[in-house]
Design a protein around this nucleic acid. Sequence first.
DNA 1: ACTATTTACTTAACCGGTTAAGTAAATAAA
DNA 2: TTTATTTACTTAACCGGTTAAGTAAATAGT
Lengths: 339, 339
Amino acid sequence: MGNITIRMLAKELNLSTAAISKALRDSHDISASTKERVLALAAKLNYVPNPYAGSLRRRKSKTIAVVIPEVANSFFSIALNGIEAVAIEKGYHTLIYLTHEKLAREKAILQDLQSGRVDGVIVSITLETTSGEHFRALASGQVPLVFFDRVCEEIETAKIITDDFTSGYNATSHLIECGCKNPALLSVSNSLSIISRRLEGYRQALADQGIKENPANIILCGNDPNENYALIQQVLKRKKRPDGIVATIENLTTEIYQVSEKLGLSIPQDLKVVCFSNLATVAILNPSLTTITQPAYEMGKTAATILFKALEKKSFLLENENIVIPSSLVVRHSTVREL
Amino acid sequence: MGNITIRMLAKELNLSTAAISKALRDSHDISASTKERVLALAAKLNYVPNPYAGSLRRRKSKTIAVVIPEVANSFFSIALNGIEAVAIEKGYHTLIYLTHEKLAREKAILQDLQSGRVDGVIVSITLETTSGEHFRALASGQVPLVFFDRVCEEIETAKIITDDFTSGYNATSHLIECGCKNPALLSVSNSLSIISRRLEGYRQALADQGIKENPANIILCGNDPNENYALIQQVLKRKKRPDGIVATIENLTTEIYQVSEKLGLSIPQDLKVVCFSNLATVAILNPSLTTITQPAYEMGKTAATILFKALEKKSFLLENENIVIPSSLVVRHSTVREL
DNA sequence: ACTATTTACTTAACCGGTTAAGTAAATAAA
DNA sequence: TTTATTTACTTAACCGGTTAAGTAAATAGT
């Protein structure tokens, strides 16, 4: 650990450690000339205060934790980018924890975070998370908690989300307007609120356009690409196969394209596709992909901003509110042949 | 911060704090029955030790820092994934710092990390980094430092790299074998060692295949997508335009494809393209992209493993070594029409 | 000239654990 | 039975800052 301490500065300058500490924090208690001497020596010796000593005394760590399912995912990595930008600006440090969609990991991490390691936590929950019990201790304690995107509705705190119902509605309506009679929806969870809302939007769009819902067209995918490939293939081999797909998460894109290619279905003629995706490369896919693009960076940034607002107040109370940042439908060639 | 302390447990059980501390760490000093009582109460009260108190005393933080240019980038996000996996397994915490390719940020971060905040650091340097001075204090101190991918050669420590020369060589040779007479290389830095090596590989391949090097075919791109687009367009509008491109970084892919489309150049007939890329979607691009795929996860994992090897020893000396994990050329339709 | 206030510090407790050193009681060895 | 050792703790210093409370000297006020 860092070797040069406030005590050494004190000895060198014949001052008390208190004087050094105050000089470094620019206290009124210390004369200008002394401050100068202290700053000069600190700079010369390249003194960097031990953060944990201060954290212990002040009971503040100037650190936040970000708990997300994956980082090798464009949505989460962009959101993390937004969070980190705010944290750095505020002089905070960012601990990153990946749950890999495992509830057990999420619980273990949240348990650890009760230690005072961080001043605040930003979470996007796993696909397995159905109860919010493990968030309760944190939220009811003095550690403010903000959810983004995949939120835990039963916990009363700030939640940064996008307009999932509308997005699901728009994606589905768009497919129908493009001529789909039998659009399917690829889901990944029956519990995640964002997925439920996208599904509700899908249903409402069907209803509004007078298409009868077919339960077989709501397909629950999983985490394994191979299994998803097999599942999608099975769906697209049906006699009355879907002529459109709304994929509620990004990582289903590759499988949809690959199965279509394998089955000789051409997109968008035989199958129209809309994905929830933030990939930069969607525009150069074959064909380019119509997407619901989520405001990932903005969501991360907003989550962090709201969190710091709570941290800067003495009361750590975060209002139970949903902050909605809209997504946008970007139409490309996977739904429309000519643009 | 966490409210329940070792002192409260001590009072409750009529023991000293030392006894509690030892009981929790399963010391031989404490009787089995007492340990049981302590563990039971700790569990009941959901006691989580304050990490900073321990860090201060033991001069170990059980935390590492990862300093990378960007996280919204498939290579770095996958590498971070690998690092985090090892850290979690070892019971360590991971602080993430993004430099956004700014040397000033990198310096400020490295300065802070001398504080004892972390036990070790993993870095991939910025495009602006030419000198390693700001790494010296850390490396010469007691904080072990490991570089991965974008390494700082002048610092004597462990460096996890891929076979950049060979990759550049293979990418270029592949283009030539596919019929290119005039392959260009898109660079992003004149100082970064990995880019230099890729360039050397490119040159060697030209030499071996008897193609005279054309300096105008070595193109220095930057960080701004729009500028890169303009630059690539300018190159592909030349009378004697390149018939092949080796792109040394992933984020040039979109611009290459878009310029080609705009200029009516079809890939691979008019222009063959190989990119250094870890994007999952390369297989479904239009056309699918031939890549040099770096072992991003393995590199992150190895960097972390080497770091922890040093952390687990009493001596923090990291050998000055290059650990090379090979990349692979994956041939797809951007260089070969029929596979 | 004498008290009140301000200036510029110092002292010491504190944050919450860890650990070297000490100790009383129980057990083992001689 | 006496001494040596082990067991199961306690005491207190320590990590490196922060900060409430105290103090001596200088300055201001009357």
